[in-house]
Design a protein around this nucleic acid. Structure first.
Lengths: 138, 138
DNA sequence: TGCAAACCCGACTAAACCACTCGGGATTGA
DNA sequence: TCAATCCCGAGTGGTTTAGTCGGGTTTGCA
């Protein structure tokens, strides 16, 4: 039930970008220093975030990254799915066919319920909530 | 956000025991065959479950394992915490002191909310719910 | 009394994954 | 031009996972 640093750092970096949304691109070096993360490692996380259209990059001097959408339009779930892969707790829940026991598996219902609750929280929490300290509200 | 096979198999085995609760001990070999799990591996999972008092073992011929409490008194959370360790999604949430940024960490609130929801589901789902197909009810 | 069925325990291992690091290339503003 | 910046692929040491293996010890039953 652990999240890796990819998810942790990814959300930290995106939150950093959200705090500076609308003020031009922020350099990787700045984010890394501000959040206390390895710059090269963070770079690896930005790649999929860009490819997935969550951030835009500006190359060259004075370049950097910026959110591709407003903070309220990006959920923590969006970020985690991109940097961590699918969020389901067990392979067999995400992909029913892969589970040989799925038909008679009594445990399946707990995992399904769990996945639903996890996705509820992560999809209903946006960067805007993080920035305004209103996580879990409305 | 993945669960390991320890958690998956642990719940499967405990559910198996719950289905045969009150009919004497069930041999590891029987559970392993019924659930399609390696017997030796399952043995490793039963050790902590026994040490934690969730199951009782009967040694010698005709021996086996049985639940130490009624199925309604054992939650999925109980099982997972024993075989998987603490359920929190990030180290820094479980142990605030270990997180250098905890004070100013905006992301922290999401992880706390997430952990709370996960524990809610797992602690309110018992083996009895699994056996009766009433997961998520009452 | 002997034996086989069962639990008990510690050590080992191959493969995968994690959290990075490294080195170089392409792009662009000043 | 040059320095800042993003872009990309490859490598790496350590840890974890999902087991296997080989031997105990205990006990019901013939």
């Amino acid at each position: 039930m652990k999240l890796t640093t990819r998810g942790e750092y990814g959300v930290l970096a995106m939150h950093d970008l959200a705090m500076h949304y609308g003020t031009g691109p922020v350099a990787l070096k700045v984010i890394a220093a501000r959040q206390g993360i390895s710059e090269h490692y963070l770079e690896q996380l930005m790649r999929p975030l860009r490819q997935d259209g969550l951030v835009r990059s500006v190359r060259g001097a004075q370049g950097g990254y910026e959110l591709a959408r407003a903070p309220a339009e990006i959920s923590v779930g969006d970020i985690l799915r991109v940097v961590e892969g699918p969020l389901s707790t067990l392979e067999c829940v995400a992909d029913g066919a892969s589970c040989k026991r799925s038909a008679k598996c009594a445990a399946r219902s707990v995992w399904e319920l769990l996945d639903r609750k996890i996705n509820d929280v992560l999809d209903s929490t946006t960067l805007h909530h993080l920035c305004t300290g209103t996580v879990g509200q409305e």
